[in-house]
């Protein structure tokens, strides 16, 4: 069986996989990182979003083998070593941006990429547009948008440190 070597949340692993194994299956089934979820089979819902080399991608629409040699960050890898949460995680809780929690990991990963790539700042309308790849069925997005909006200044201030 082919082998894939990748670094997930700072830890390098080499795993044998069938060629047809999706990255999300590798993360969930082989590496036990069940924080990344599968909510659809048509690449629409975004519950499976992770970062690969700093870009958000849908891990259900990528073969594990395509991730060979990459740096992957999942929801489990966001908090600092001492447990300090990422500002986006903090703001999701502060603004009640999650209910059932199932879309949350993908939503948080997408939101971080969105804010990072837009240091000029985003309006609430732009945030809504930037969430096109993520579905939430619980919140009506109102509080998700608020949380991401609030995280902008925190993240940009942190990046400027």
């Amino acid at each position: 069986m082919p082998q894939v070597t990748l670094t997930v949340n700072g830890k390098t692993s080499s795993v044998e996989v069938e060629a047809r194994t999706l990255l999300v299956e590798l993360l969930r089934d082989k590496l036990g990182l069940t924080g990344t979820h599968v909510g659809c089979d048509t690449s629409q819902c975004g519950a499976c979003v992770v970062h690969i080399d700093g870009n958000s991608v849908k891990s259900c629409t990528m073969l594990a083998l395509q991730a060979d040699g990459t740096q992957v960050t999942t929801i489990e890898g966001l908090a600092a070593a001492d447990g300090t949460l990422h500002p986006m995680q903090e703001m999701f809780r502060e603004h009640h941006a999650l209910q059932c929690g199932f879309c949350t990991p993908g939503m948080v990963m997408s939101a971080i990429d969105l804010v990072q790539k837009n240091p000029q700042g985003l309006s609430q309308d732009e945030i809504r547009h930037g969430l096109e790849g993520n579905l939430c069925r619980c919140t009506g997005y109102h509080n998700i948008v608020k949380a991401i909006d609030a995280s902008q200044s925190l993240m940009h201030a942190k990046a400027a440190e």
């Binding site: 929801i75 489990e76 995680q89 809780r93 009640h96 990991p105």
Partner: peptide
């Protein structure tokens, strides 16, 4: 603020 959020925002659900 919700108790359950701590696990959901960390991938520990």
């Amino acid at each position: 603020r919700r108790t359950e959020d701590l696990r959901f925002i960390s991938g520990k659900g």
